[in-house]
Design a binder for these strands. Structure first.
Lengths: 219, 219
DNA sequence: AGGTCGATGTCGTAC
DNA sequence: GTACGACGTCGACCT
């Protein structure tokens, strides 16, 4: 990884065109060839960048970064205040916990929390427009499609609505009810779901995990 | 801006929990208080970060970054290889060209490219759930709502559908037709739009700009 | 503060 | 490679 602090102008030509007037900035050149230009604010997003795979051509005072789609990032250097190189090695990478996949696993193993006597037909039940998170049967044997989100917003309701429309065309399944399950459901999403006859369920990740560990304790 | 190269472990607890095993990484502390942790690959995305507003507490060997929502980023430092401070000043910021706003401007000025004798009612026509990009009238005086995207995907069709549903409840406007206009329209989005009676129009940014300059040339 | 929407979104993954 | 959905999406704008 190479760190350069320099006064520079930057021009990007690709999906859009963009220009950065002259100023002091951090140029970050990573070992995969990617380049990013950072100002002294905003943790997440660089002012300008080129993602790998891409290639840096270095001429005196001008860096050109190009990718396969022929997008270019041109950095014109006016004054270099710092330039250092560091060998970081390969990063072991991030370990995550608490994402949607985990919610799906947990709820799949505890569909009875949705209703007494409910059973799981399958996770990732395939449809023409993509898989439904869970397909269940309630105690009377009726089908129920469940869409799971960490944060329940309007998009998720639309997604479930599309699935329901499709599933209800299948005479072997219809009628299929819908459940919108999320750790947190935005008021607007709840209104839309309710208006469409979709039941909303708030999930408690820690509680579901609790059930898990309780059951573990039984053995 | 402070640049630190250090062997460290990182723990994030907030919307999810995440852990980074010990490795050599770049720690980027910006003057707005934000902190990001970068590996030697991927231009854009830090491994871990805390966005401003947030606050860094520095103890020997342990940094803690916290925000208002009480999410925390804990960095445990094992070995510091580099530590430098740089005063970059305020960045003049990015000048962009070719984003959706420009497409909207251009199409607003050339609604006749959508149909002979069409007129613009207004840009950003307000509805209860957000503004419609363009509201037009066709040659017969009928209303047409236009949703503009750079890249036309399924979300945009859903968005336009919601607008149309609302606009068609207004007896002064109804019936309102829909146009989904984008530089590029994904097949799935086209299918969905067509199925809902929404016309799809592919926009040519350069051509629209060309019309612009042609008209300039007339004077 | 909360909602909506655009983004050079980026990133993973299934087909 | 393309398409699609998730993301600690972020960030900008408006109420």
């Amino acid at each position: 990884m190479r760190l350069v602090i320099a006064r520079c102008t930057v021009d990007y030509a690709g999906r859009l065109t963009a220009h950065l007037p002259s100023a002091l900035r951090l140029l970050l050149v990573k070992s995969d060839g990617s380049v990013s230009v950072h100002a002294d604010d905003r943790a997440y997003k660089p002012l300008n960048w080129m993602s790998p795979p891409c290639w840096l051509t270095e001429e005196p005072g001008v860096w050109t970064v190009r990718n396969k789609a022929d997008e270019t990032l041109t950095i014109t250097l006016e004054e270099i205040q710092h330039d250092s190189q560091h060998d970081l090695g390969i990063d072991p990478g991030l370990v995550k916990d608490g994402v949607e996949a985990h919610l799906q696993e947990l709820l799949a193993e505890h569909v009875h929390t949705l209703g007494e006597g409910w059973t799981l037909v399958r996770r990732e039940y395939p449809t023409a427009i993509g898989p439904v998170d869970l397909l269940c049967r309630d105690d009377s044997g009726s089908s129920v499609a469940v869409e799971i989100k960490r944060r329940g917003e309007i998009d998720g309701v639309e997604q479930l609505t599309r699935y329901l429309e499709l599933l209800n065309r299948d005479p072997l399944l219809a009628p299929v009810a819908g459940i919108f399950a999320a750790q947190q459901i935005k008021p607007q999403a709840r209104v839309l779901a309710t208006d469409r006859g979709i039941r909303c369920v708030t999930l408690d990740y820690d509680a579901l995990r609790g059930i898990e560990s309780d059951e573990f304790r039984l053995f």
